[in-house]
Design a protein around this nucleic acid. Structure first.
Lengths: 361, 361
DNA sequence: TTGAAAGCGGTACCAC
DNA sequence: GTGGTACCGCTTTCAA
C-alpha cells in the first residue's frame, strides 16, 4: 500500500496524483490545465487522460492562494424573494458567468449586524467586489458605515458597489449604479396629472428609505409643475409590500379621503391598493386610477395591466459587474473617479390602469 | 524600508503582519482567532488590538486549504427570478447562515452545458453540498447525468441534493427533498370535481417535466376517483409561465372548447389564464373557476384570490440544508440511506377563485 | 501557554 | 518543452 491515497481513495485527487499517474511533473500538469503555456501534444494527451480517469478538478482554494483563481463577486441583498432585486441579481450573475466569474449571494434580512458579518465574510473570501442591492435607510450613521465598508474592502483589493441607492458622499472608494428614480416619479406623476387627476393618494414607501424619498420628491415636483397643491395628508408611508398598499387604501377610504388616483411606490404596493379598491366596490380604472413603479412582471400580469415606471434592473446588474470588471482589467486611460457613478434612465410604461377621473356629479 | 509590506500597504494584511506587530507568533494569532484553544488573556488582548488596527480578516482560501474553513453550500437554479425557487433558495440560505455556512448561487438557464460547468466549478470550490433546484426534464440521459454528478461530488467529499424532483434510481449517493406533488394535484382536482366541475381545462406544464408529470397524474387519478372521464383534448402542455396560461386559454376558447374550470400547473400559469378569460369577457369565478399550484405570494394577490396547492418551498430549502449538515456532522447512529429521501406534504389553500359551475342554460 | 515548522494543493520562476 | 522547488496564508502537531 502506498502512503498517499491510491486512486479510488476518499478525498479529492490532487495535482500530484495526476502527475504521478501520468508520469510527469506537477509543473507540467499545471501547465496543461491552465493552458497558458506551450506543451507538447503528447504530454497534453497523457495528462488529460489521467484527469479524465480521476475526474480531477483543481482545488480553487489552493489556486487562489497561489495567485490565480476565479474572480468572485458577492451579491448582498435584503430579501432574495423580491422581484426587483432578483432581476438585478440575475443581471450581475449573468454578466459574471459570462466572464467566468463566480457569484456568491448573501441575504441580510435588513439586519445591520448580518450585513457587517457578510461584508467581512466576503472580505475573507477575497471577492473582487461586493454588490449591495436596494434602497438604503438614510440614517445618520449610514454614510459612515458604508464608507467604512468601502475602505475596508478597498484595502483588501476588493470593491464596494452600491446598486439602486445614491452615491456615497466624499472621497470614498466605491462604485454606484443608480437609476433616475426621481425623474421616473416625476414622469409618472405627470402622466396622472395630465390625465386630469388632481386628488391623488401617494404611497411612496418608508420615509427613511432613499428610494422612497426620491420617488416622493419627483412626484412633488410634478405637482408643482402642474400648479397643483401637494397635500401632505394624501401621503401615506409604509413598507414596499402588498399589505401596505392594501391597508393604506383601506384606511384612506375609511377616513373618507377623496382621491381619484393612487400613485404607488412600487408595483407590489399598487397590487395591494388595487385589491383594496376592489374590496370596497370601486373599479379600476373606471372609478380610481392606479400607477406603480418598478415594472416587474407582476405589473403586466395584473388586471387591468398596470401603468408603471420601468426600471432597468437587470441592466443595472450587468452594468455593475461590467464596471468592476473593467476597473479590474484596469486598462490605461482609466482615471480616478471614472465610471464611479453610473445612472441609468427610467421611463413610463403606459398600460391600462389609468383613465381620466370620472366627471364630478 | 522593510521588505514585507508595511501597514497601510496595498494588499490584505496577513496573519504574519498581525503576529509581527503584536510581537507574538503566527501560531498564537491563529489560536486567538479560531478561539478553539486556550490562550492567555494578555495575549488575546494584544492580538485583538492589532487585528482591529489592521482591520484584518483571515484569508478563507488559505484557511480551507489548511484544513479549517467555512462549509459552503452551492445552490444551482434555472432562473433566479422564479418565485417558487426563490423561496427554496431563501430556505437554504437562511439555514446555512444560521450554521455559519456560506452559500453560492449559480444559474443554469436550462442549459446542460452550464449545469455541468457549474457543478465542476462547485467541486473546485470544495463545497459541502450542491443543491439542484426545480423539476427536471425527464430525458433518458437525465438519470445517468445526475448519477455521474452524484458520484463525482461524492468522491470529492461533497453531496448532491435534489430539491423538488424525484429521487435518483439505484444506489446513487444523493439526497432528495421532495414534496407530495401528485397528492397535491389529486386534492386540487378533487376540490374542483366536488364543486361540481366536470369540464376542466388542464394546463399541467411541459410533458417532459417531472413536476408536470406528477401534477397531471394526480389530476387524472382524481378524475378516475370521481368517475369522470379524462379528456386528453382538454389537456394543453407548455411552459410554466404567464404567457402559456394566457395563450392556452385563448386558444382553447377560440377552438370552442367547452370548460367551466381551469386547473393550472402553477399560480403564474393561472394568472395568465385568468387574464385571458377576462379578455374574452368571462368572469372569474362566476363563469369559470381557476385553481393554481405552488401558493406563491402572487396567488393571494390576484383578484380573485387564487385557490391553490401550498408547497412548502422555504421549508424544503431548510430541510435540504439540515439534511446535509446532519450527515456531515455524521453522528453515530446514522445508517446508510438514512434521510436520503425526504418528502414534505402539500395541501389545498381555499380562496376565492372557485364556484360551482353555472347551471347549464 | 507559546513558538517552530511541516504541510494543505497549486503556480510560476529558474534551471536544464 | 519539462522538471524542481520556493512560496501563497493558515492550521496544527510537536517541543519547549
Amino acid at each position: 500500500m502506498s502512503q498517499r491515497k491510491a486512486s479510488g481513495d476518499a478525498g479529492r485527487a490532487t495535482i500530484r496524483d495526476v502527475a504521478e499517474q501520468a508520469g510527469v511533473s506537477v509543473a507540467s500538469v499545471s501547465r496543461v490545465l491552465s493552458g497558458n503555456y506551450p506543451v507538447s501534444e503528447e504530454l497534453r494527451r497523457r495528462v488529460m487522460k489521467v484527469v479524465g480517469d480521476l475526474d480531477y478538478v483543481t482545488n480553487a482554494h489552493a489556486r487562489s492562494l497561489a495567485g490565480g483563481g476565479t474572480p468572485t463577486v458577492a451579491i448582498l441583498i435584503n430579501d432574495i424573494t423580491g422581484a426587483a432585486f432578483a432581476h438585478v441579481a440575475r443581471g450581475v450573475e449573468g454578466a459574471a458567468t459570462l466572464r467566468g466569474w463566480l457569484s456568491l449571494v448573501g441575504t441580510t434580512g435588513d439586519d445591520p449586524e448580518r450585513e457587517l458579518a457578510l461584508v467581512n465574510m466576503m472580505r475573507q473570501q477575497g471577492v473582487a467586489a461586493v454588490v449591495l442591492l436596494g434602497g438604503a435607510y438614510d440614517y445618520d450613521e449610514y454614510q459612515l458605515r458604508m464608507a467604512r465598508f468601502a475602505r475596508s474592502l478597498d484595502a483588501a483589493g476588493s470593491r464596494l458597489v452600491l446598486v439602486g441607492r445614491p452615491p456615497l458622499e466624499g472621497d470614498v472608494p466605491a462604485t454606484t449604479v443608480d437609476y433616475d428614480n426621481e425623474g421616473g416619479a416625476y414622469a409618472m406623476a405627470s402622466h396622472l396629472l395630465s390625465a386630469g387627476h388632481r386628488k391623488v393618494l401617494v404611497l411612496p414607501g418608508h420615509a427613511e428609505l432613499t428610494t422612497a424619498q426620491g420617488r416622493l420628491k419627483g412626484a412633488r415636483r410634478a405637482f408643482e409643475a402642474y400648479g397643483v397643491p401637494f397635500e401632505p395628508s394624501m401621503v401615506r408611508h409604509g413598507f414596499y409590500d402588498y399589505e401596505h398598499g392594501y391597508d393604506a387604501v383601506q384606511e384612506s377610504l375609511r377616513d373618507g379621503l377623496d382621491f381619484t388616483a393612487v400613485l404607488a411606490g412600487t408595483d407590489v404596493v399598487a397590487a395591494g391598493a388595487m385589491q383594496a379598491l376592489r374590496a370596497a366596490g370601486l373599479r379600476v380604472p373606471e372609478d380610481v386610477s392606479i400607477v406603480g413603479y418598478d415594472d416587474i412582471p407582476l405589473a403586466s400580469q395584473l388586471t387591468p395591466q398596470l401603468t408603471t415606471v420601468h426600471v432597468p434592473y437587470e441592466e443595472m446588474g450587468r452594468v455593475a459587474l461590467r464596471a468592476v470588471a473593467d476597473r479590474r482589467e484596469g486598462g490605461p486611460g482609466r482615471r480616478k473617479g471614472d465610471g464611479d457613478h453610473l445612472v441609468l434612465g427610467t421611463h413610463v410604461v403606459v398600460r391600462n390602469s389609468v383613465r381620466p377621473p370620472a366627471p364630478r356629479v
